[in-house]
Computed example of a mutant assay.
Amino acid sequence: MSIIFDYKNVPEAQRGASVALGNFDGVHAGHRAVIDLAKQVSDARGVPLAALIFEPPPRRYFQPDSPPFRIMRPEQRREALKTIGVDIVYELPFNKELASMSPRAFVEQVLVKGLGLAHLAVGFDFRFGKGREGDTDTLRQLGEEFGFTVSVMDAVKADSEKISSTAIRTYLQEGQPEHAAHLLGHYWTADGVVEQGEQRGRTISFPTANLRIGNLIQPMFGVYAVWAKVEGDDVWRPGVANFGRTPTTGEREPLLEVHFFDFDQDIYGKHLDVAFVHFLRAEKKFDSFEALTTQIATDASDARERLGSAPQKELPAVIADFL
């Protein structure tokens, strides 16, 4: 898969694609439906399949101080797009130049002269151009003028609920990772590099791998049953994790602490992927470290009962009967 960061210098081999345009944060079923529309044209015409994304997202550009909201890091998103067969990712910097373009200028300068696209697929609620002046009707009109075709995907639903990144974020913030997974089609996964912690867990036989999730959306503070994969390992391991400020031992910046079942290796400095499966309980302040220790044992037992203890070669499928 090719990644292009500048629409003004696109190699000839990466021009003329059937392009799906969107933020694709999460690469959920709705996003994949838009990409499938572009793929139909790609297959029929024998042209590359591409995804066009702005980085940073326009929301971050216009609201730089807003809380973290990403469902996926750019690296995770690229890998997900590659997995579903995208040939080219146009990951264009969203800056003052792009933000000030009229709908017509964007189509002419970026899509036509820059990418030389053959086809464009978008979602039904797509807006573009300065002040979000352009919509799907605008795209169709400009497509006719500039010689590319346009397809528009209707809303995609799961059990009558519209699938959207906004709904997924809400579920994660409300402590409902099962519902988020239902809309994503896979478990939401946070990642980071394992860092040195306070090592209190080792004193009670519950060592944890600690990591910060950076600019990913922060799920509800609390305890989760998780699957986790260590860099260089070839299996997903079940475990229990706490995300929060650990009020019992002294509040600090939010940290994800993961305890693997039946695992004892030094993984400091390694990258860790953590898939959130079940929400077990909200974070709380305990009266003593002993009370916290008792609860941790209960949490681990609960998570083990839900997930089992055996590592898996592939991340298990989303459980569909939680609703």
Rank of each mutant, 00 (worst) to 15 (best):
A17K: 05
A17D: 12
A17F: 01
A17W: 01
S18Y: 03
S18M: 02
S18G: 03
A20L: 07
A20T: 01
G22S: 08
N23P: 00
N23R: 02
F24W: 12
F24S: 08
D25F: 02
D25Y: 06
G26E: 07
H28V: 01
A29V: 00
G30R: 10
G30T: 01
G30C: 04
H31Q: 09
H31I: 02
H31S: 08
A33F: 02
V34L: 04
I35M: 09
I35E: 03
I35S: 05
L37D: 10
L37V: 00
A38W: 03
K39S: 08
K39W: 05
Q40I: 02
V41I: 04
V41F: 02
S42R: 05
S42Q: 04
D43R: 11
R45D: 13
R45C: 14
R45K: 14
G46D: 06
V47N: 11
V47L: 10
P48S: 13
P48Y: 12
A51H: 05
A51R: 01
A51W: 05
A51D: 06
L52T: 00
L52W: 09
I53H: 04
I53R: 06
I53S: 08
F54C: 07
P56S: 09
P56W: 05
P56D: 12
P57M: 15
P58W: 01
R59E: 13
R59P: 00
R59D: 11
R59W: 08
R60E: 11
R60A: 09
Y61H: 13
F62R: 06
Q63F: 14
Q63L: 13
P64E: 11
P64D: 10
P64Q: 09
D65M: 05
D65C: 05
D65K: 07
D65G: 14
P67T: 03
P67I: 02
P67G: 11
P67N: 10
P68R: 06
P68E: 12
P68S: 12
P68F: 09
F69P: 00
R70P: 01
R70L: 15
I71K: 03
M72Q: 14
M72N: 10
M72S: 07
R73T: 15
P74T: 00
P74Q: 04
P74Y: 09
P74V: 00
Q76I: 04
R77G: 01
R78M: 11
E79M: 10
E79N: 06
A80R: 11
A80G: 08
K82E: 15
K82H: 11
K82W: 05
K82I: 00
T83F: 10
I84E: 14
G85I: 03
V86G: 11
V86N: 09
V89W: 08
V89A: 14
V89Y: 06
V89I: 15
Y90M: 06
Y90S: 07
E91N: 09
L92T: 01
P93C: 07
P93N: 13
P93D: 13
